[in-house]
Computed example of a mutant assay.
Amino acid sequence: MIAWIAMCAQLTFGQDLISTLGQQDQTIQNEQTAEGRSVELAETDPHLSPIEMLQQTLNDIYQGFIERLPYLGAGLLVIIITWILSNLVGSAVFKIAKSRKLRRSLCELFSRLTIILVWILGLLIAAMIMFPGLTPAKALGGLGLASVAIGFAFKEIFENFFAGILLLWKYPFETGDFIECESILGKVEDISVRMTQIRQTNGELVVMPNSFLFKNPVNVLTDRDVRRITVMTGVAYDEDADQAVEVIENALKNCESVEQDYPVEVFLNGFGASSIDIEVTWWTSPTPLGHRKSRSEVVSAIKRALDDAGIEIPFPYRTLTFKEPLPIRKETGQAQND
């Protein structure tokens, strides 16, 4: 029994030894093969001409591109799906926000932020498909490093982007409002996250950076349904000023462009060079065209009412006073003929 156990142990040990030796031989052969390839490459590469090396490099690039082609196609398909999905999701978010009776600017803001988020996720997935070794952690880390350089390079673009978000979030004007900023007056046609398009009253289109609107005072002319207008007029000193005020008030009551629900204010303003100045104030449509129409109608009505009442709107008078009397000399007829 002991002899049989010893024999089995010897056989087992022999098999293990043979297996171990076989593995060592295989490892040695692999190392020799690798060394042989290295020696072969080392002996071959120096003999390649520059043109042959260039051809080999281009061939390697081409082979790598062919191998990556399925991944590139899948990534392109993801980008197309992202484009379609972003439009659908953006439209859905806009309709949901509109159904909640939010301001149009807020609806557009939520829609565009959703589109940006979908694009970020879609591009991240496409990058991970195109480059299989890329992970979300690596992508976000690379994005964090790149964002610093991009932030400095595109400072103004990002400034306009965040200004556009604040405009859509907080500012009272919407698409269709008339605004005035610095010397630009017109109708807002579109508000994007980077710029605002304003159509001026002469038909010209102004593309204004959002940061400019955010940093400068903006007059929103159509924030309310009405806007106040003031004009100055005057009557001669020898006319009854109180009667002139009453005549002007009655004249404005018959003007269609004057909002009768709001007070019409007519005040004696001061002593002018040739007349008693009268300030006339009323409310009308807030648009520039409505403003001009109403001003024209009111000025015409005041002029007609004062003329009908026999109240003079004087021309500028000039009275010259001399320190000493001026001598008047009558010319003779002969001098006059000459």
Results as ranks from 00 to 15, higher is better:
residue 5 I to G: 08
residue 14 G to H: 05
residue 25 D to H: 09
residue 36 G to W: 08
residue 50 P to E: 06
residue 51 I to D: 01
residue 53 M to G: 07
residue 54 L to C: 03
residue 61 I to M: 03
residue 67 E to P: 01
residue 69 L to I: 02
residue 72 L to Q: 06
residue 73 G to P: 05
residue 77 L to V: 12
residue 86 S to F: 03
residue 89 V to R: 08
residue 99 S to K: 10
residue 108 E to Y: 11
residue 109 L to H: 06
residue 112 R to I: 09
residue 120 I to D: 14
residue 120 I to L: 12
residue 122 G to N: 04
residue 124 L to R: 07
residue 139 A to L: 11
residue 144 G to R: 02
residue 145 L to Q: 11
residue 149 A to K: 01
residue 151 G to A: 09
residue 152 F to M: 02
residue 159 E to L: 08
residue 178 F to G: 00
residue 180 E to R: 15
residue 190 D to F: 15
residue 195 M to I: 08
residue 200 Q to A: 13
residue 200 Q to C: 15
residue 203 G to P: 03
residue 204 E to M: 12
residue 210 N to A: 01
residue 210 N to Y: 12
residue 212 F to M: 13
residue 213 L to P: 01
residue 213 L to S: 05
residue 215 K to T: 12
residue 227 R to D: 06
residue 231 V to L: 13
residue 255 C to W: 06
residue 259 E to G: 02
residue 260 Q to T: 14
residue 263 P to H: 04
residue 264 V to M: 07
residue 265 E to F: 05
residue 271 F to H: 13
residue 272 G to L: 10
residue 281 T to Q: 15
residue 283 W to I: 04
residue 283 W to E: 09
residue 289 L to R: 12
residue 293 K to A: 03
residue 301 A to E: 08
residue 302 I to T: 06
residue 307 D to R: 00
residue 309 A to L: 08
residue 310 G to N: 01
residue 311 I to D: 01
residue 311 I to G: 00
residue 333 G to L: 10
residue 337 N to T: 10
